[in-house]
Amino acid sequence: MIAIEVPEVNYTEYSNRQLVAVPLAVLALALAIILGWYLVTGAPANLGLAFTGGVELRVADDGGNVEERIETEFDRQPDSIRSIPADDVYVVTFRAADEDPEGLAEELSQQADDAGLTTTAIDQVSPSFAGDTARTAIFGVALAFLGMSVLVFALFRTFIPSLAVVASAFSDLVIPVAVMNLLGIQMTLGTIAALLMIIGYSVDSDILLNNSVLRRTGDFYESVSRAMRTGITMTLTSMAAMIVMAIVATVFGVDLLRNIGIILAVGLCADLMNTYLLNVSLLRWYKFEGVKR
């Protein structure tokens, strides 16, 4: 039987600078990707329907080469067509930058009916509403992050360890956004929820580590390895749940659950790196050098 053994890492072999280099390099790369995306596309991520506005139809697959018909039967060229085999539907997206989306939704559903296509769902978002949603979402994430930071500082009341937690939480948020860009995952309401969830989830292992090192007696390396044993089990358990959720939801075409699953899995992966490289080295510096000053 396979068993999970949390590996013992011999931190003494590496200097703080070496340990910090990897997570900082990844963070810098992620920020560069997001910045590049912003410069090229005008938005930091691939914005979904909820943030751009437009119409999305779900068209039932009745077996008669629906995909071809979708491409030809609508007066407008669809921006994307996605097939969901388990559900026998195609998701067809039309962006509408400044046109009348309600009229467009009526028109498209009419055209689908005329072409003998069965629409099972229609979503319509107007561009100005979408802009409002985007602002609200950014505000929400910023507020959550700020609240978490204040709480962490209040809990530990020491600067460097609290900063370590906040820094790795920041990196945990930025890396999934960059990965989303690379994988072509759209920013939707579901991914916003997932990003907020990362703030909640990822801080757990950081708090565990800080608590073990700062509030408990014992050798630094002993405390770290104790926290790692628990923390890595926690993160892997959550990741397992999220990966399964992402895979199953992809097969079934339940977008919301798929997006939440993927983002959380990536975020938790980033958290493993940030907690046990970035956070540990900051704590070690604080413990052995920072305190003496």
Partner: peptide, 26 residues
């Protein structure tokens, strides 16, 4: 329990903006 309480508090703080902001089903 100290760790659990702290972790729970951060999750609640992180999630509470979503509860009041009007962001669809979230």
């Amino acid at each position: 329990f100290w760790v659990i309480g702290a972790a729970a508090a951060t999750t609640i703080v992180a999630m509470s903006p979503l509860m009041v902001l009007s962001l669809g089903d979230l």
